[in-house]
Simulated assay, not measured.
Amino acid sequence: MRVGVVGAGIAGLAAARALAERGCAVAVFEKSRGLGGRLATRRTRDGLEYDHGAPEVPDAQGPLAAYLAEAGAAGAAARHGGGWVGTPGMSALVGPLAQGLDIRHGATVAAVTPAGAGWAVDGEAFDAVVCAAPAPQTAALCAASGPVSAAARSAEMDPCWTLMAAWEAEVAAPAALTGPEAAPFEKLVAMAGRPGRAATPDRWVAHADLAWTRAHLELDKEAAAAALLAPLRAALGVGAPVHAVAHRWRYARVSRPVGQPCAQDGRLVACGDWLLGPDASDAYASGRAAAAALAAVIA
């Protein structure tokens, strides 16, 4: 069986790996140059690296716990704080899931449509398809499927503006890294001290809180960086940085999940954190559930 998977985040790769282990020929379509989705690492032309998506994966139970142990043994992940981080960057955490798979980078999918007994990804026919994109994108990509698009439209996802900045000198951590005292930031993350990361220059990732993000959602990246840099400098008590750039996560986390492991229309299945909850364990469980759901109909 040939299966197309749209999205190479942890949900899509969990589904792809499980299907490949069942003997399916899997092709993964990923619009970016990397893997991991919001388990993301930004690398600049000057060699700076920032974990600008999910800062860590919390300790988990069940299948994800077993996978994290496997990734740790492979050198792709390490314990940090109360959870796990990818090494040398967050996106490395999904590396073992992707090994041996046909990953098609730079593939921006426009539509998933019926194709005989199966489904097609931009006209390429497969026996089955897994869509592992964020809920709003899944609703658009899978518009030809009433059940899948309806499920995706019922989920709600929140955005997040993120600022990445670097200083040559060491920066002392502020007293408040999270919560209301850190406003307008939801969380400040220091790159120094994270396993596998360079110690210098001192790099920080600042995730704006939901209220600030919503109020400034449509700023361009330069304006957002300038607006967030002033309060970050005040919070850290530092001067001008040597580098600063902003990134908008339009679909950063699910605030109202669907409440089921996956959404299915015959040989089309959607998965992702928007179905079960905001944690990586939810996305991983949803991906594996999608693979099991497809296996039941294509066996």
Rank of each mutant, 00 (worst) to 15 (best):
E30C: 06
D122N: 10
V258N: 09
A198D: 14
A182S: 12
D220R: 11
Q61N: 05
M90V: 10
A152L: 12
M191F: 05
L97P: 01
A226L: 07
A135W: 06
W119A: 08
G95W: 05
A169N: 08
G86H: 05
R22A: 15
V6N: 00
D46H: 13
A175D: 12
T213I: 06
G4V: 00
A293I: 01
V109D: 00
K187R: 15
V57D: 06
A263Y: 08
V242C: 15
L219N: 05
P184C: 04
M157F: 02
A18T: 11
A117D: 15
A54P: 02
A54Y: 12
A183I: 02
L141N: 03
L177N: 07
G277V: 11
A74F: 08
R17M: 02
W84K: 04
V94H: 11
R104E: 01
A76E: 13
L19D: 10
T213S: 14
P136D: 06
A128T: 08
R267D: 13
G81Q: 11
G196N: 07
L48Y: 12
V94K: 12
L217H: 11
A289H: 04
G75N: 10
P96I: 02
A215L: 09
A120V: 09
H207C: 10
G95T: 14
L268G: 12
S145D: 05
G34S: 00
R194S: 00
A16E: 03
G123N: 10
G62S: 09
A206I: 12
R153Q: 14
S149M: 07
P136T: 05
A144D: 12
T87P: 08
V3S: 00
P278H: 12
V245E: 15
A98F: 00
G72K: 09
T41N: 00
C142T: 13
S149Q: 01
V254M: 11
A199H: 07
V254C: 09
I10N: 02
V94D: 13
G72Y: 04
S255N: 09
R38H: 14
G237W: 10
S255W: 12
G83A: 12
I10K: 05
G36N: 02
P134A: 04
A143G: 12
R104M: 10
G75M: 07
R17S: 07
G239F: 09
T200I: 06
G95F: 04
A211T: 15
D51G: 07
W119V: 08
D220S: 13
K187E: 08
R45S: 14
W161K: 03
M191T: 02
P136Q: 02
L13E: 03
A252S: 15
D102F: 00
G86C: 08
W249N: 07
D59G: 06
P63F: 03
A208W: 13
L219H: 13
A235D: 02
W204E: 03
W161F: 05
V269Q: 02
L276N: 12
G47K: 10
A172F: 01
A128G: 13
P174Q: 05
P231S: 04
L93S: 09
V94F: 02
R104Q: 14
L276E: 11
E49L: 13
